[in-house]
Amino acid sequence: MKNKIKVYRAMQDLTQEDLARAIGVTRQTILAIEKGKYVPSLDLAFRISRHFKVNIEEVFTYEEGVRTVDID
């Protein structure tokens, strides 16, 4: 799962801490998602994209056949 959180954050001039506080998670979680270490739940993915006022597909892209760390 790829994401453009960093890009959207930069566009809206938000720090990881700002975004984390706005959606009720830790800064470490935002960092882990941005780095692809953690795949967020659908609920969190929606909250993030709603915060940026865009559709979920614009922030998150599913890559076929790419195994993520969240699976095992």
Partner: peptide
């Protein structure tokens, strides 16, 4: 702050 990642 216990979010879904720390819960996981």
């Amino acid at each position: 702050i216990e979010d879904e990642r720390s819960a996981r």
